[in-house]
Simulated scan of single mutants.
Amino acid sequence: MVKEHLQFTLFEKGIFERVVLKPPMKAPGIMHNEACFLYAVEGESKVFSAVSDIMLRTEEAVVMKCGNYLNDWLETTEQSFCQAIAIHFYPDVLKKLYDKELPEFFKSVKDIQPTCIEKVKSSRLLKNYINSLQFYFENPDLVNDELLKLKLKEIILLLVNTDKSGSMKGLLASLFTPTEYSFKELVEANIYNNLSLDELALLHGVSLSSFKREFNKVYKESPGRYFKRRKLERAAKLIISTNERIGEIAFNCGFSEVAHFSNSFQDQFGCSPTAYRVSQNNN
């Protein structure tokens, strides 16, 4: 549930956003010709792209290039609400911002393979920048287009100048170039994530029916049956090779409920997870 949503627009597009929400909540992000900087002021989230995911904790940030994402805000004992600040990048806005000639760091960077999502290291400079945005969200009457242009340039320079590895430069140079991946890469990357078929279809950028058709064509098996089998096979290996609790194994293999996991395990292996551990250890 969204409790608060504030937005500043520039060149008729929403650029700066502040959102307060009550977790748990999953927020899809469809960004075909757009990129985004996301900062968690408070709360924890797991950000999924098609073939990777990143944990986002309080006072951490990520930059996401164009693509489809799912932001899973998690319920914790520390916070009742989550707060995030998002800054959106559009190619036409950046051209206007830099008077049609983009800086060098938006151009090709050699020897760097950019990912679709990159975590931004926490720093005093970044915290100060976020605090300055918070001030303007609390005092919107002070905001005008010239100020927004300065703040947009400021975050871009901050990201570039604090990038020691060069990975952020690589990401900025490919902000609006979609990451290519195969259908199998998407499936294999998300087998043990607790994502629905609808959510996987969203990450792939297709309808649910199209996703199911492609899955059956590639795997010769229904997605529900394939995912359950792979999850249970991994769980069986962890049960006999680790001392993890059954509930932890169920969660790590993508099951949201221990009871559902136990019933599925019983159907697959003919005994409960606990009995399976005992029998295998005695052999």
Rank of each mutant, 00 (worst) to 15 (best):
Q266G: 00
S167Y: 07
I240M: 02
L74S: 08
V41N: 02
R18L: 13
R57C: 15
I54A: 12
G270A: 03
S122M: 08
F269R: 06
R277W: 02
V41F: 00
I15K: 05
G43V: 02
S123F: 05
L152V: 08
F106M: 13
V160Q: 13
Y39G: 00
S210I: 13
L56P: 03
H5I: 12
F11Q: 14
F211T: 15
I30R: 10
K231H: 06
C66D: 08
D53N: 14
V187N: 08
E180L: 08
L10W: 14
E185Y: 06
F137Y: 11
L157P: 00
L202S: 08
S167G: 01
F11I: 11
S262E: 12
Y39W: 00
F261R: 02
I191L: 10
A201E: 11
E185R: 07
K231T: 04
G270Q: 04
S80L: 07
K220T: 09
L152R: 04
I54V: 15
I30W: 03
F183L: 02
V19P: 03
E233D: 04
K149N: 11
V20R: 15
S279N: 03
D198K: 14
V63K: 15
E118D: 08
R277Q: 12
L6T: 15
F137R: 12
S132G: 09
L102V: 06
K13I: 04
K153H: 06
Q79H: 10
P28F: 13
R57E: 15
S167M: 07
L97K: 06
I85K: 00
L10T: 12
I85T: 01
M168E: 03
D111M: 10
K212F: 11
E4Q: 14
R57N: 15
Y192M: 09
A250W: 03
K110V: 09
C253P: 11
L150F: 10
F16V: 05
Y226R: 09
W73R: 10
V19A: 12
P91F: 14
L152W: 06
P178Y: 00
L195I: 08
A35L: 06
P273Y: 09
E221F: 04
L147G: 05
Y276P: 03
L97E: 05
L175A: 06
Y129E: 02
C253K: 10
V41G: 00
E34C: 07
G205C: 12
K119A: 08
N216D: 14
L21Q: 06
D99C: 11
F269D: 09
V41R: 01
D99A: 11
A35G: 08
N243P: 01
S210E: 15
H32W: 05
S132C: 11
K107L: 15
H204T: 02
R277G: 04
G254R: 07
A275Y: 04
E188K: 12
F176R: 03
N283R: 12
R277N: 09
D267A: 13
